[in-house]
Amino acid sequence: MSPPVLTTRKLSLHIGRTKVCSNLNLEIQPGECWGILGPNGAGKTTLLHVLAGLRPADSGEILYGRRQLPDLSPREQALWRGLLFQDGLGGFPGTVFETVLAGRHPHLGRLGWETPEDLRLAQAAMDATGLKGLEQRNVSTLSGGERQRMEIAMLLAQAPRLALLDEPSNHLDPDQQILMLRLLKKHFSDSGRAMVMVLHDINLAMRFCDNLLLVRGNGQHRSGSVTGVATEDNIRWLYQHPVSLLQAEGTACFHFL
């Protein structure tokens, strides 16, 4: 059996006075889709960056496959995991195609020159996210939703084992939210890779994720399968707000009162 894509052992993390988690043990298996939920300021983004190896935890271990995260070179890390950022891209923007192509960077040889295969994968990622025809547009002229889809295309071009997504539905229209999450799910969890996404919308999480991690922002967390974790009690505990679970025709959704 293949090892978990991501394992955390006794992971503890705090930012300022906020305790994000203490002694967090997770095992994310190939094919799984996890959602991280929690109130604003609970440290979800920071936790995601720690899982990506971009900043250190207070204590504990993170493993990619069987290897300890710090033992992997930056390039090996970039081949294993990709990150969709929440904040927009600044700097000097190039064209959309150049930016999507940048996602291939960890796969390039020593000279950093893209092969025809890299170009093909970048183009395929643009087609899949509905950006066909925008290749030569300057990134600064894109709308918020187009930008978000471009970042998703960049991640698809990077094609890592594990996708860490910070609010992938940001800036997207309701139909695009569903289309993009379906696309990500098809590319990552359905193909034996794995994905972890921070979400604001509990109902989107219930629809797409098979496992949930709830972080409360005081060091407490609850995790497990959606059916076990997404209960009225847990969601009320998480957001400190009254909720009720509405069920009809085999689907369930939370209603915040």
């Binding site: 960056h49 930056p74 390039r75 090996e76 970039a78 950022f85 700097g91 150049e98 940048a102 960077h105």
Partner: peptide
């Protein structure tokens, strides 16, 4: 350095996420 410079333009966090030291 040129390929790495291109990624540096995307910002510190993005460049690091794509494997640049």
């Amino acid at each position: 350095l040129a390929p790495a410079l291109n990624l540096a333009l995307l910002g510190t966090a993005r460049a690091a996420a794509l494997g640049v030291r």
